[in-house]
């Protein structure tokens, strides 16, 4: 057999291998990350599931879930406070995003920078700063004292009932309201930014067309702008609700740690005194499911609206 003949199939094989490589080379760029995801995204979540359904020394069990109704109030409180924070963020964030989108391009750039700047301050510090504002002897109460708000309230109170106990501060810190305030404060930019980015992409001619066809300012907003900005609203709501429902820092700092939230409960099971990663995993799993369900309902709602608009 000649040398060339011997090599021909080899060369062909090499060529085929090369073209295979050519097609797959770019795909192959993703392989390291796919392995990474398997190791550090998939396996950890599977581990949470395994832990949730087992107990040390027993193996498979549903015990972690059967005892969980004790924590129903914690679930309820977390969902309620996160819901409130999300609604407030939406009520403040949407008009703000709309107002920003109506300014000049230069102003918009500066305003967006200013929105992101506070995020560069460590969020623990931002939350901590509220403590000094909200405390009983904090700056807001001092301010109220200085302008005589408490005297006014006391005189009104005394005239209404004889048994009025005079107050010298409003209780603001260590309340549910303070926790909601902390959530709104920390996550408001996450509501404004996605809504703004969707609104500025709306074709101005669409709005003009609606106006030409006789729609009033309100109708244009209700029938054109709002439906078209819904995808921004949905991502804003997600970006506020998810961290709000799972926070443990805000509730510790501003809620005084008395009213536990889901985050506190989970943290306690992993790093706190009540070390029980199995129970912690079960609670985490339920929280994940709640979040996924909430989000898919949101997305369904969004899709429906969009098709309604198309029709």
């Amino acid at each position: 057999m000649s040398k060339a003949k011997l090599h021909a199939p080899l060369i062909k094989l090499r060529q085929r291998f090369r073209s295979f490589l050519d097609r797959n080379r770019k795909k192959a760029f993703a392989y390291p990350y796919i392995i990474w995801m398997a190791l550090f995204v998939i396996i950890p979540i599977l581990l949470v599931m395994v832990y949730a359904f087992t107990k040390a020394g027993i193996g498979f069990t549903l015990e972690n879930f059967s005892g969980i109704n004790v924590y129903a109030p914690v679930f309820g409180r977390s969902l309620w406070l996160a819901f409130l924070a999300t609604i407030i963020c939406l009520l403040i964030g949407y008009p703000t995003a709309l107002a920003i989108s109506r300014t000049s391009a230069r102003t918009q750039r500066i305003v967006l920078m200013m929105l992101m700047l506070p995020m560069w301050i460590n969020f623990l510090l931002r939350t901590y700063a509220w403590m000094s504002l909200l405390e009983n002897t904090g700056l807001i109460n001092r301010f109220f004292g200085a302008i005589g708000v408490f005297e006014l309230v006391n005189s009104i109170g005394e005239s209404l009932s004889a048994s009025w106990t005079p107050i010298d501060h409003f209780q603001m810190i260590n309340t549910g309201g303070a926790v909601v305030l902390g959530m709104v404060y920390n996550y408001l930019p996450f509501m404004i930014l996605p809504i703004h980015s969707v609104i500025i992409k709306i074709d101005p001619f669409v709005i003009e067309a609606a106006q030409d066809l006789g729609a009033s300012g309100k109708t244009v907003f209700r029938k054109v702008i709002f439906p078209l900005s819904l995808s921004g609203v949905i991502s804003g709501v997600t970006m506020v609700f998810v961290p709000s429902v799972s926070t443990f820092v805000i509730s510790k700092l501003l809620g005084g740690g008395t009213d536990m939230l889901l985050g506190d409960l989970i943290e306690m099971q992993f790093l706190g005194a009540a070390y029980n990663p199995h129970l912690g995993s079960a609670i985490s799993l339920i929280m994940m499911i709640i979040v996924v369900v909430c989000m898919s309902i949101m997305n369904k709602f969004g899709e429906g609206e969009e098709t309604a608009v198309v029709m």
Binding site: P44, I45, L47, V48, V242, P243, V245, S246, F248, G263, I266, E267, F270, G280, S281, S284, M287, M288, V291
Partner: peptide
């Protein structure tokens, strides 16, 4: 995912 879930897992 919530940060706490990523952290815990």
């Amino acid at each position: 995912n919530a940060d706490i879930i990523t952290g815990v897992s």
